[in-house]
């Protein structure tokens, strides 16, 4: 029993940092870069993706024994597209301003490889409970990455965060950061940071193992 709950915890937590969909697996880049020129847009996109990923993981895990193997991809895509349509119309009704700014990128959540990837690799092979936990973890990790990128780009490119000006009038915004090249460069540098942390962690673990061996 203890083991089972540990596995559940593991599925939930892995998506947030260690197997982070963006930094570790490099999935779902397209919406990631296109909408992260401000932190608000990043949160709206993250929220919509969260809803779609959790909803479709639930349905796929629930219906996995009825979906024929040969047409599974098409079935997954139709399920995902349904949830995206719901998210699209909901955002249009609730926050029309943000919806207009995100534009075509809300429907494009369908083509986010992260979502289809999770259905194919995980939800279609596991129980509803685990699939939900996995989806929540992955979506939270995705949202975290979106927010990091959006915050960096908005602070540097606009001198503001969530629309609140952070610096005085002397600050000259780096306009390039909210333009397309800034997205590529910021994500590249964030990945570099992630790699560096991963390498450091591995070195640390190696040393721990060595020290333990030395003792015994």
């Amino acid at each position: 029993m203890v083991k089972a709950s540990q596995q559940e915890y593991e599925e939930l937590i892995k998506g947030i940092w260690r197997d982070n969909p963006v930094f570790a697996q490099v999935l779902g880049m397209c919406p990631m870069l296109a909408v992260t020129n401000s932190a608000i847009n990043a949160i709206a996109m993250g929220g919509a993706t969260f809803f779609v990923l959790v909803g479709s993981s639930f349905l796929v895990a629930a219906f996995k024994s009825w979906i024929p193997k040969q047409v599974r991809i098409s079935c997954f895509i139709i399920i995902i597209a349904t949830f995206v349509t719901v998210a699209d119309y909901t955002l249009l009704a609730l926050i029309p301003g943000v919806h207009k700014e995100l534009g075509a990128f809300i429907p494009l959540i369908v083509a986010n490889c992260l979502i289809l990837g999770r259905q194919e690799a995980f939800a279609s092979k596991s129980t509803i409970r685990l699939a939900l936990l996995d989806a929540i973890g992955m979506a939270a990790g995705f949202m975290l990455a979106l927010l990091m990128l959006g915050a960096v780009r908005e602070i540097l490119g606009d001198g503001a965060l969530f629309g609140i000006k952070l610096f005085g009038t002397q600050f000259e915004p780096w306009v390039i950061m909210i333009l397309p090249p800034g997205g590529f460069l910021t994500l590249g540098l964030l990945l570099l940071l992630f790699n560096w942390l991963a390498v450091k962690r591995r070195k640390f673990l190696d040393e721990v193992i060595k020290a333990e061996r030395g003792q015994s």
Binding site: V26, P181, G182, G183, F184, L185, L187, G188, L189, L191, L192, N195, W196, V199
Partner: peptide, 14 residues
């Protein structure tokens, strides 16, 4: 350290 996706993204940025 920089090999792989990080470098590709920076090239893409340029």
């Amino acid at each position: 350290l920089i090999q792989g996706t990080a470098m590709n993204l920076i090239i893409a940025g340029i």
